[in-house]
Simulated scan of single mutants.
Amino acid sequence: MTNLNIRNVSYSYPDGTLALEDFCLSISSGERIAIIGQNGAGKTTAVKLMNGLLKPTKGNILVGDMDTKEYTTAQISRKVGYVFQNPDDQIFHNNIESEVRFGPKNMGFNEEQVDKLTNWAMDLCGVKNYNDENPYNLPYSIRKFVTIASVLAMDSDVIILDEPTAGQDKVGLERLVHILKVLEEKRKTVITITHDMEFVTEYFDRIVVMANRKIVVDDNVDQIFYNHEVLEMSMLKPPAVTKMAKLLSLSDGITTQAQLLAAISEKVKQ
Rank of each mutant, 00 (worst) to 15 (best):
A41I: 13
T194Q: 08
E97A: 05
I61L: 08
N8M: 12
F109V: 12
T17L: 09
I160D: 06
S156F: 09
I96A: 00
L25Q: 06
L138T: 00
I179A: 08
G42F: 04
S156E: 01
D132Y: 05
E133C: 10
M235K: 15
K269L: 13
L4N: 00
W120T: 09
A34L: 11
A19G: 07
E133M: 05
P14M: 05
K246H: 05
F145I: 00
V127F: 05
V208F: 05
V151F: 09
Y13D: 03
M50F: 12
F92Q: 10
Y136F: 15
A41S: 15
T17A: 11
V230I: 14
L236S: 08
Y203M: 09
A262G: 01
M1P: 10
N119P: 03
N106F: 10
N129K: 15
V9I: 14
A153V: 07
N39G: 14
V146W: 03
I76F: 12
V268W: 10
K128W: 05
P56E: 02
A262T: 11
M244C: 11
V100N: 05
E232C: 03
P14W: 01
E163N: 10
N5K: 14
I191A: 00
L180E: 04
D67S: 12
C125M: 13
P56R: 00
A263H: 07
P87M: 02
Q85R: 11
Y140G: 07
R143G: 02
T17N: 10
R7G: 01
N39W: 08
M244G: 02
S12I: 07
E232H: 03
P239S: 05
V127K: 01
I264H: 04
I191C: 01
N220W: 08
K79W: 12
L152S: 07
N220F: 08
M50T: 04
A149Q: 04
I264C: 09
T255P: 14
I61G: 01
Q257C: 12
D252P: 14
E31I: 02
T73C: 13
V230R: 10
T147K: 09
D162S: 00
V158Q: 00
P164S: 11
Q113N: 04
T72P: 13
Y130P: 00
K105N: 12
L248I: 04
D67V: 07
V241T: 14
M244P: 02
A240K: 15
M122R: 08
R143N: 01
E31C: 06
L247P: 00
C125E: 10
T189N: 09
D132P: 02
A153H: 06
I207S: 03
D65P: 06
V114Y: 04
P56Q: 02
R206S: 01
V63A: 09
G30A: 03
